[in-house]
């Protein structure tokens, strides 16, 4: 329990640090992001003082008191008040982010867990059958596919499976005619649209999990408790799973938490290729239109999601390793 409390404390501290980084980023940049933002916004009509204040709190005013700005900013973050987007004027930034977030969370979340579980199993198999075909095939393929740029895998799948063979839809998260709801028909339609982006992420991230698990498991296979288990005549499957793999999973889980940021980063590019309406696609639009308020809010959201995911991984680790319970 103390372990979980400590991890909660660490999460809060890290969240605060991420929020603070987000505050200082635009203020450290050359030029004035605030002026640029307000000028852009002015193209849509007069800028109200309230809107101006919100943007200043977020992107900074060169003359203002930095501490006051920081307090206002923290308040805005806590109330999810990120101002107005000028790319999608007059929608509020928080509305845009909250609409996009579920698409990414579900699609990327599910496929990442599937990839990790599958990769880990293949890694166990590769390490156990070391030096055989079952080792070299996944290891070498994994080495190669994990070097693929995410967006390139996406482009290839889009071209061959989307345009040439026309097996899957090429754009969006659901059919143009449908409106999002929770009916079985809509979910099936959404799942169908999610296949190509999901497979892209699976192909590109799987190799890393295979290699990581294989290497840690080769290490645990050399540990004394594995030799002792064999000396005691345990069945090979029990030695492999309950002894070698069970211990190898622990460092690998930590690796999973740390590599998560990379997968999320890659999936942003995948969304851009498939015009998938998640945070990545939105971030791309924000960046190309220099929509700084939207961009900042998205970066914060992505960071917070990864931090929370890492926290969950940490708690899971604590559950799996009795040594943390003392």
């Amino acid at each position: 329990m103390r372990y979980v409390l400590r991890k909660i404390g660490l999460l809060l501290l890290t969240l605060w640090a991420a929020v603070t980084l987000n505050f200082f980023l635009p203020r450290m940049m050359p030029g004035s992001p605030t002026d640029a933002a307000i000028a852009k916004l002015a193209q849509n009509g007069p800028v109200s003082p309230a809107t101006r204040a919100a943007i200043e709190a977020q992107l900074g005013v060169p003359t203002g008191n930095i501490w006051d700005q920081y307090v206002t900013y923290l308040g805005n973050v806590l109330t999810l008040d990120f101002g107005v987007s000028y790319t999608f004027f007059p929608q509020s930034v928080s509305d845009l982010v909250l609409t996009a977030l579920p698409w990414t969370l579900v699609m990327v979340g599910v496929v990442t867990i599937v990839a990790f579980v599958l990769g880990t199993l293949l890694g166990v198999l590769a390490a156990w059958k070391r030096g055989t075909f079952l080792d070299s095939l996944p290891t070498l393929t994994g080495t190669f596919t994990s070097a693929f740029p995410y967006f390139w895998t996406a482009l290839l799948l889009l071209f061959f499976l989307g345009y040439v063979l026309q097996w899957f839809p090429t754009s969006g998260a659901y059919s143009a005619r449908a409106t999002p709801n929770l009916s079985a028909a809509f979910i099936a339609d959404a799942a169908y649209h999610a296949v190509l982006p999901a497979v892209t992420i699976l192909i590109t991230s799987l190799g890393g999990w295979i290699l990581g698990m294989r290497n840690t498991m080769i290490n645990t296979l050399g540990d004394d408790y594995v030799t002792f288990a064999e000396a005691n005549g345990l069945k090979p499957r029990a030695v492999a799973l309950k002894y070698a793999a069970r211990n190898a999973i622990l460092p690998n889980l930590t690796g999973f938490g740390l590599a998560l940021g990379g997968v999320v980063g890659g999936s942003l590019l995948v969304e851009r290729v498939f015009n998938y309406p998640g945070v990545g696609y939105l971030l791309y639009n924000a960046v190309t239109n220099q929509d700084f308020p939207l961009m900042q809010a998205l970066f914060l959201m992505i960071t917070v999601s990864v931090l929370v995911a890492n926290f969950i991984v940490d708690v899971l680790y604590g559950y799996l390793d009795p040594r943390t319970r003392r």
């Binding site: 540990d223 004394d224 408790y225 030799t227 002792f228 288990a229 000396a231 005691n232 309950k242 002894y243 069970r246 211990n247 622990l250 799996l320 390793d321 009795p322 040594r323």
Partner: peptide, 15 residues
């Protein structure tokens, strides 16, 4: 059967 030198490491730490 065999008893290894490093009995401390001969047991699976998570079982």
């Amino acid at each position: 059967a065999m008893v290894l030198q490093s009995g401390m490491n001969a047991l699976n730490p998570v079982r």
